[in-house]
């Protein structure tokens, strides 16, 4: 039987040159690069496309630097906030390709610090160390370091968060200070919103959290606040809301108890009335029965009396008859004497 599909496909073989090129690629790829490639694969497909498009545009406009440009384009971001706010732009290969202080303190921290071209972990470590040296991390351990990833991919967010957290931990350890680390992620479109407001996305995220708890809060109010202060406001507000809630629940319980009490009282009253009524009814029934019995007895007595009277009459009548006879007899007796 013919099977052209199979015989044709059997003729398809990997070209020698293709095998050689793949082999040399695999021999030269280092595990470090493997990890980065892995990171790249997980990256957001759409961003990847835009990045490629942008890189090609650069290539067309600027000539031969296309490939260079491609690797230099930040596709995801990460913001570090203490009060200094700094944002890192991360390329597809996971390198920091852009760094920006979003407030004045952020610029202070970045003075004399170069993190371009390093990994996210190294960059965050350098930044937190510099922040500590510039006295932005308090010695009592009360400071809060916020790490916010700005990406549309969950897996990238996780990788960036882990790398940044590692960097913060290392820096705190090196500087021998303590601080609370909070992590969050936002989508890229919220980053634009933050930048319009001139604030770091991480901070905006926290302020928006606070706004959810207290609608009167404005961004301006907390724009220059430390993360620690915003966190404190959030915690306080949460406590307040909790306390309000507690109060509300307590009131509700009290009300329910009160209502329950009234209801019980009412039931008891009703019960009492019912019992009273029953007792009255029973009493009158008994009274009636007693009356009836009484009258029955009375009637019986009357009857008995009548009977007795009759009997007495009968006896009397009898006795009268006997007396006449006796008289007769005695007369007879006296006659015979």
């Amino acid at each position: 039987m013919n099977n052209h599909f199979k015989t044709a496909m059997d003729q398809v073989k990997a070209e020698e040159a293709l095998i050689l090129r793949t082999s040399s690629y695999l021999k030269n790829v280092e595990n470090k690069n493997v990890r980065r490639n892995h990171f790249l694969q997980k990256g957001n497909q759409i961003m990847k496309k835009y990045a490629v498009a942008a890189a090609l545009a650069v290539a067309l406009i600027g000539g031969g630097s296309g490939v260079y440009g491609y690797y230099k384009i930040p596709v995801n971001y990460l913001s570090v906030d203490v009060n200094p706010s700094i944002e890192l732009g991360v390329s597809m290969s996971g390198d920091v390709v852009e760094v920006e202080g979003i407030n004045e303190d952020g610029n202070t921290v970045l003075e004399g610090v170069d993190v371009i071209g390093t990994t996210v972990e190294e960059a965050v470590q350098t930044i937190v160390e510099s922040a500590t040296e510039n006295n932005f991390i308090e010695e009592d351990g009360s400071s809060v370091v916020s790490i916010t990833t700005e990406t549309d991919s969950d897996s990238v967010s996780e990788e960036l968060t882990n790398a940044a957290e590692e960097g913060v931990t290392q820096a705190l350890e090196n500087e021998n200070v303590e601080a609370e680390v909070i992590k969050s992620k936002i989508a890229l479109d919220r980053r634009d919103q933050a930048r319009e407001l001139g604030i770091s996305p991480g901070k905006l995220n926290l302020i928006q959290k606070l706004q959810k708890l207290d609608s009167t809060v404005t961004v301006d109010q907390y724009k220059d606040a430390k993360v620690k202060e915003i966190m404190k406001a959030i915690k306080d507000k949460k406590k307040e809301v909790k306390a309000d809630l507690k109060e509300e629940v307590k009131e509700e319980i009290d009300q329910t108890i009160e209502e329950g009490k009234t209801e019980i009282d009412q039931t008891i009253e009703e019960g009492k009335a019912e019992i009273k009524q029953n007792v009255e009814q029973k009493k009158s029934e008994i009274k009636q029965q007693v009356e009836q019995k009484k009258s029955e007895i009375k009637q019986k007595i009357e009857q008995k009396k009548a009977e007795v009277k009759e009997k007495v009459q009968q006896i009397k009548a009898k006795n009268k008859n006997n007396g006449t006879q006796t008289t007769v007899e005695s007369t007879t007796e006296s006659n015979s004497q």
Binding site: L26, K27, N28, V29, E30, N31
Partner: peptide
């Protein structure tokens, strides 16, 4: 650490 893949494996 830099590590390459085993030639034979490839």
């Amino acid at each position: 650490m830099i590590q390459t893949f085993d030639d034979k494996k490839i």
